[in-house]
């Protein structure tokens, strides 16, 4: 029971991270292509300025939760994905610094450099996150002691000895890039005004078609690479609600963006991300990290879970702390709600 609860609590942290940091990553990718003037760029960046750091906290809090609830998974996955995680860290560092410091520098050349770095690091991060999730779904060559080490690439095939990047995980990376860029565009339709808002709305259409195509391809590829992903769905047919939710939320994005209802379109995109991630987690459960070297080496829930007392105590403070955290988050978002107005104190 504790295992079930903590599995889904960690999943909630991941969904929270992707939905929230997702839109500011998407804004990072988009701002390179969408904005025309310095004022538009300032408005774009001001739309995420007060919140991006809090959004990134979901990654840290999620990592910490994973560490204490599933120490074996944390130890195995973090050391096994050593190289890509270090690259993710470097990208997170570059991104945070370039976003936050451009406003402290008036010199044009510095700003161009920092803006470029911000866009590039945002794009690469979405690709790495997508590829990371695809790596977990595909499985890794776990040794008998529960550890592994993956090179960045081998022969680009998802066989028994894959690399971080193969054709399957690259699809995952591209899917994340497109989904989060679209998510960011919808955020901009809520937060910006004028021509910028129109451009953001127009860019949604082509992104949407690509997203629908990539969603279908990734679903087919996942079933091909790991057929066991479907077992839970066939055992509990009611859970086919998840793929139906994916389709419905894709429809919602299209419809509400067409009808110029940006908040509803953005929420549809949140639901899309939620259903995609929840669907992936459900496809894995109760495995946490499948082994390409034989199912008996899978890292499963029962193998990785912390001691009972740790988890019981954790449930109390975690619940209390997250209620508080959601309180601050709602408060901050409500203080900065509405369109960005540069004349009113930079927001």
């Amino acid at each position: 029971m504790m295992g079930f609860i903590w599995f889904w609590l960690v999943a909630v942290m991941i969904v929270g991270y992707v939905v929230l940091d997702g839109f500011d990553l998407g804004v990072g990718v988009l701002h390179l292509f969408l904005v025309r003037t310095e004022a538009e760029r300032r408005a774009t960046l001001a739309s995420i300025g007060p919140v991006w750091d809090g959004n990134e906290v979901w990654l840290l809090a999620g990592g910490g939760t994973l560490y204490f609830a599933f120490p074996l998974l944390y130890a195995s996955a973090f050391s096994g994905f050593y190289l890509p995680l270090m690259i993710v860290l470097w990208l997170l560092i570059l991104r945070g610094v370039s976003l936050e410091l451009r406003n402290h520098l008036e010199v044009g050349v510095w700003r161009v450099l920092l803006d470029g770095l911000f866009g590039l690091s945002s794009a690469l991060l979405t690709i790495f996150f997508g590829a990371a999730l695809a790596n977990v779904l595909r499985g890794v060559p776990l040794q008998a002691d529960g550890y592994f080490f993956l090179p960045l690439w081998t022969n680009w095939q998802p066989g028994p000895h894959p690399g971080i990047l193969d054709w399957y995980t690259v699809i995952g990376g591209l899917l994340a890039l497109v989904a989060l860029t679209l998510h960011g565009a919808l955020w901009l339709t809520i937060k910006t005004s004028g021509e910028l808002e129109d451009r953001a709305r127009r860019v949604v259409t082509p992104l949407w078609f690509v997203l629908v195509a990539l969603t279908a391809v990734s679903l087919a590829a996942t079933i091909a690479v790991r057929p066991a992903s479907l077992n839970n769905y066939f055992n509990y047919p009611a859970t086919f609600i998840v793929p139906i939710g994916v389709v419905a939320s894709l429809g919602g994005i299209w419809l509400f963006n067409r009808k110029v209802q940006p908040v509803k379109a953005f929420l549809s995109s949140c639901l899309y991300l939620f259903f995609m991630l929840a669907g992936a987690c459900w496809g894995l459960y109760p495995t946490l990290l499948p082994a390409t070297t034989g199912a008996d080496r899978d890292i499963t829930l029962s193998r990785a879970i912390s001691g009972p007392h740790t988890l019981a105590v954790g449930l109390v403070w975690w619940g209390f702390g997250m209620v508080l955290a959601i309180g601050y988050i709602v408060f901050v978002y409500s203080k900065f709600r509405g369109k960005v107005d540069l004349r009113a104190g930079g927001h």
Binding site: V57, F68, S306, T310
Partner: peptide, 14 residues
């Protein structure tokens, strides 16, 4: 993890 994972996760949450 069962011990020091707690304060580390609490740092994030609280």
């Amino acid at each position: 993890g069962g011990v020091i994972g707690q304060p580390l996760a609490m740092e994030g949450v609280f």
